[in-house]
Design a protein around this nucleic acid. Structure first.
Length: 450
RNA sequence: GUGGCUGUAGCUCAGUUGGUUAGAGCACCGGAUUGUGAUUCCGGGGGUCGCCGGUUCAAGUCCGGUUAGCCACCCCA
């Protein structure tokens, strides 16, 4: 170790290569959101502790970076953005034009034990639509998830959005257990795959006289994969519960029709097994997963119509999702979807010596002014060394300013991919090289020189 | 918060039953090389062997503790 200082556990140093990857992911997020008409917002990194405990309860303090500041205030680094969003939207609820479509790409902090794809500091993209109760907002949110995946280079074979419905679960369970047991049963359902059957039955017995029967119905419910099957399933339910459940399916039809119109049907799978973290969700919920391999969760979200009133003081239906940078990065990395040479220059000027320096630097400046990425050696060096440096920097082209070229008011351009060279007049060099960057060296041999 | 595995150069790792001044490849810097880049050759910098303690004439090596990382559980807003 050159230094005895290290970054804190779970926090990352971003060397240029890492930073380029991070910025690439930010770019994917921002561009997709902006195309969908979302606007970016942000909030303080440090917030009053109560803002977070109000939503999630005292238990989450274990996972907060919380402390008392010098003014004696209980504060915490933000573990998520939704409470801040609710506060900000709630404060201006009356004057915001609806629907409110906001996104942010924020650094968040959770005091957790680290593992693959999870640290104590991470970046998360959030997009929310507030003030629209209809499923059009849910569809827009889900389509944005898919748009980000597409923009990143993923295909429908790589990732899937599993769509579930908290309302449907509540109505389904209400027909089988007491109202106050619904939440408890949902948390049991969440662990269905991870716990032995005996343990599940034992827990269900606290909520029903017929745990085996209830488990059978839940398993049948979980197997439903389309609205037609759901409808057939509910037709057998007793009057009262049946009408409510069938009415909910009308919303499902409307949502799926919109998703079809938005062209994301291939990415969406009805899967009522998505019940995790349903504490404050009130309607459609979803999570995006990799289809194969690790099966990592890439994003998750849903409708939370009551949360803004609770935290922001104003009635405001809402839905949204979050997507972390770490799992997305791993998914893209494994598929070779991270661009190479994100920091590479377009052109590297190879400069003969002091006599050629003035002409070369003048062109470098003009090219940079035009928006091209141009580098050159900061000290005099042999031609061979300069070419090595140009290649090591990942430059697409070398611009050669030797005595011959400069004397003739020319510059030789070398394409590092093909190894071919073409000589241009320095007159109008900016326009020529803008074209070279976009289309490569001209094929017309009359430009050539050999 | 619980359990398993692992810490030797920036990276990947070697290092004999404990035995002189701890090595290699890659990477980096310089040179061969003042007109052409992923090849080649030569040289250089860089290590308190994670940390603390113990056993021993002697510890990178053995023992104990600790810390960090990885993986799984818990959790996932």
């Amino acid at each position: 170790m050159a230094s005895h200082f290290q970054s804190l556990p779970g926090f990352r140093d971003f060397y240029p290569e890492e930073c380029a990857v991070r910025n690439h992911i930010f770019r994917l997020w921002r561009q997709a959101a902006v195309r969908f008409g979302f606007v970016e917002w942000d909030a303080p990194v440090l917030e009053p502790l109560e803002l977070f405990t109000e939503k999630s309860g005292e238990e989450i303090r274990r996972q907060l970076f919380e402390f008392t500041d010098k003014g004696g205030r209980a504060v915490s680094l933000r573990p998520e953005m939704t409470p801040s969003l609710a506060r900000m939207v709630g404060a201006k609820a009356a004057s915001l034009r609806r629907p409110v479509k906001w996104f942010c790409a924020s650094e968040n902090f959770r005091y957790e034990r680290m593992q693959k794809g999870r640290g104590r500091s991470f970046y998360q993209f959030n997009a929310d639509i507030l003030g629209e109760a209809g499923c059009g907002a849910d569809a827009e949110i889900i389509a944005l998830v898919v748009e980000i995946f597409r923009e990143a280079g993923l295909k429908a074979a790589d990732a899937v959005v599993r769509l579930s419905d908290r309302d449907l679960w509540v109505d389904f369970l209400a027909a089988r257990v007491a109202q106050e047991s619904v939440i408890g049963v949902l948390s049991i359902v969440d662990k269905l795959e991870r716990e032995p059957k005996e343990s599940i039955l034992e827990k269900l017995a606290a909520h029903t006289k017929d745990p085996a029967g209830l488990l059978g119905e839940i398993q049948a419910f979980l197997k439903l994969r389309c609205v037609a099957d759901m409808r057939a399933f509910f037709e057998t339910f007793p009057e009262g519960a049946r009408e409510k459940l069938l009415a909910r399916l009308v919303e499902w039809d409307a949502l799926l029709a919109r998703l079809d119109g938005l062209g994301v049907t291939d990415w969406v799978q009805v899967d009522l097994g998505i019940v995790r973290g349903l504490a404050y969700y009130t309607g459609f919920v979803f999570e995006a997963f990799e289809r194969s391999g690790e099966g990592r969760a890439l994003a998750g979200g849903g409708r939370y119509d009551d949360l803004v009133a609770k935290l922001g003081g104003a009635e405001m239906p809402a839905c949204g999702f979050g997507m972390g940078d770490m799992t997305l990065r791993l998914a893209l990395e494994e598929r070779g979807l991270l661009p190479q040479f994100l920091n590479a220059p377009d052109f590297y000027a190879v400069i003969g010596g002091a006599a050629e320096q003035k002409a070369a630097l003048a062109d470098v400046s003009a090219l940079r002014e035009a928006g091209l990425r141009v580098e050159y050696p900061l000290k005099e060096a042999a031609f061979g060394k300069q070419f090595k440096q140009a290649a090591a920097a990942g430059a697409a082209f070398a611009l050669i300013y030797g005595p011959e070229e400069v004397a003739a008011n020319q510059v030789k351009v070398k394409d590092f991919t093909s190894g071919k060279e073409t000589t241009f007049s320095r007159e109008g060099i900016v326009e020529r090289l803008l074209a070279v960057r976009s289309f490569g060296l001209p094929k017309d041999p009359c430009h050539g020189h050999n």
